[in-house]
Simulated assay, not measured.
Amino acid sequence: MGEPYADQVRRKHAVVAGILGAELPWSEPTTGPESGFRNKAKLVVGGRRGAPTLGILDGQQRGVDLTRCGLYEPGLADIVQRLPQLVTDLELTPYDVPARTGELKHLLITHSPDGEAMIRFVLRSRGQATKIAEKLDIIRAALPEARVVSINLQPEHKAILEGPEEIVLTEHDALPMRVNDVVLQLRTQSFFQTNTHIAAALYAQAREWTSRIRPETVLDLYCGVGGFALHALGHGARRVIGVEVSGEAIRSARQSASQLAAGTTYAHDWHVGDATEFLTETVPDLVVVNPPRRGIGADLARRLDDHGPTHVLYSSCNVTTLARDMTAMGNYRIVSAGLFDMFPQTDHHEVMVLLARTS
């Protein structure tokens, strides 16, 4: 932070191009707002009952307020600034990490392009869940944007954000996220990119590459809520298959696809499972991979190299593991590449490449 944004982008591009190859057919870096871009807030609740802090914890595990953080997009920033009063009105006791007392651990908020929001209360135990449920009218009055309100139970004293159990309090259990002309249904424990503006550009570029290839079938591994697959459907692809380890994400993708494909002959299939185990004897026309920072790994890279399709689209948030995976995929070459600045003011990056089989 403090470095001029144009200089940040040039430096990031130099880093990723230096690792993958400056001679590649790079497009101009895709950028968006340098502040006010985050569509989600993950707030640690500190302080005390009646005087909560929402933000992070300091070195002594005490709350530091970040409700006026400049990274939140405008609608989200407005919601976040109303939350301390809401926590007070709900009479919730913040969780005290050193003392291991209290109930409310985190508040997780996601904001949609249409101004709606998902609000999740992360509690230590079920004891306060009834209190929140009984005061849903207070939440609605304070946050009329809230389409989805839920309680997540995280009983363990560990540095983890949320637990496996979710209790949805509203009639809606998914937040519609309109990205380009696709509406993604985001459920409570589904992953979505932090920066909607750059996510839209990323999916649009992937669609353009897909339309150029015109694959009949697209296999989207690590598909999340289906962003890449659903942008391909009807744009070259008549069938998409998505694979993701999160059941909530697959339910989101299935719901979105059913709405998108209604009244068409397009086909879609979604599977909960390990992406590394899914390549079978039936090879699709295009494989999309969007793995976590660790990359796709040696096993999947080898399978793609041995039996993969004509093209692979690889979206990566870690150029080092992307380069490692590319080394294991010697039968492919990069034919298009781009940097997408998903995380301004940081050294993090998103890189997407289109690979073509050479042999």
Rank of each mutant, 00 (worst) to 15 (best):
E34C: 13
R62Y: 04
E3L: 13
I198G: 05
G2F: 08
S125H: 11
L43F: 12
A328L: 15
T280A: 12
S190N: 08
N331S: 13
P113R: 05
H271G: 05
V122M: 07
G59A: 11
F340T: 03
G32K: 01
V44D: 02
L175E: 07
H231A: 05
S190I: 11
A41T: 05
L313R: 10
A232Y: 02
V44G: 00
F278V: 11
E216L: 08
G224M: 09
V353E: 05
V243K: 01
L300Y: 08
V288Y: 09
D7H: 06
V289K: 01
V149D: 04
A159T: 11
M326C: 15
R140D: 01
H172F: 12
T280I: 09
T280K: 14
S252L: 03
I119S: 05
P52Q: 12
S150F: 13
G226V: 05
L339A: 05
T53V: 07
V283I: 14
H235R: 14
S252N: 04
V272K: 00
R124C: 04
G226A: 10
L300T: 04
V80P: 07
Q189K: 12
L83Q: 03
G46H: 06
S246K: 14
H349N: 08
T346N: 09
D220N: 11
I132S: 06
A229Y: 03
H157D: 15
D325Y: 07
N180K: 14
S150W: 10
R254C: 05
R140N: 10
Y72P: 04
A174Q: 13
K135W: 09
E28G: 00
T130S: 12
A323K: 10
G75W: 00
